[in-house]
């Protein structure tokens, strides 16, 4: 008998006479906590990420200021003019390693947990480009911010690779003392765009 058939047989035998019916209560939702964008900005900053809020027409200037002289890589369809940036067309890991920064969009922002989620479509690029450079500048529109995790789950497409980012890379592995900055980008800068401004 193959390992597959053997394991499935064991599972069925183990559950012989056990009813598969389990009532699954729906998970509770967080109560409304005021303005989502404010909460999102506050919670992102809690992870010691940097948050800049600006109007739509200011985004390019803000991104330029954040980058300074840093050598940046951008995804194919960022929709922003980033002077001097390299557009990713399948850069190797070593080529990405000499880039200082990356600028991406995001698919969704989660206010309750201060999380941005990337689904790596063309305005965010391949997973590698938002991972190897040390500074990640992520442009999020306020309209993309949802209240909590279940709202994000409902919006996201599981067929896409997803990266949920909550602050810069961090570890608590030494004496459970949190320090920012290990393998992922050591600086996360979220530019939160307010269409009303």
């Amino acid at each position: 008998m193959s390992a597959r058939d053997d394991i499935l047989r064991r599972v069925r035998e183990a559950l012989d006479g056990v009813s598969p019916a389990v009532a699954v209560p729906s998970a509770p939702r967080a109560p409304g906590r005021g303005d989502l964008a404010d909460l999102f900005a506050e919670r992102v900053a809690d992870y010691r990420a940097i948050v800049t809020r600006c109007a739509a027409e200011e985004v390019e200037r803000v991104v330029r200021d954040v980058l300074g002289p840093a050598r940046a890589v951008v995804p194919p369809s960022l929709g922003l003019d980033v002077p001097g940036a390299v557009v990713d067309e399948g850069l190797t890991a070593d080529e990405l390693d000499v880039c200082d920064a990356v600028v991406t969009r995001a698919r969704v922002g989660i206010a309750e947990t201060g999380t941005i989620v990337l689904d790596h479509t063309d305005d965010q690029g391949r997973r590698a480009i938002s991972l190897v450079p040390d500074l990640h500048v992520c442009v999020v529109d306020e309209s993309q911010v949802v209240a909590d995790v279940p709202d994000a789950i409902a919006l996201l497409d599981p067929a896409r690779p997803l990266t949920w980012v909550s602050g810069p890379s961090a570890t608590s592995d030494i004496e459970l003392d949190r320090v920012e900055g290990v393998h992922g980008p050591r600086t996360l800068h979220v530019v939160l765009v307010d269409p009303q401004l």
Binding site: R43, D46, Y47, G90, I110, E112, T113, G114, T115, H120, R126, R127, P158, A159, R160, P161, L162, T163, W164, V165, S166, G167, P168, S169, A170, G184
Partner: peptide, 15 residues
């Protein structure tokens, strides 16, 4: 509230 990184993937994504 949330860990720094969560990755999800479904099989192979071309490119």
């Amino acid at each position: 509230r949330m860990n720094p990184y969560t990755s999800t993937w479904s099989g192979v994504t071309p490119g």
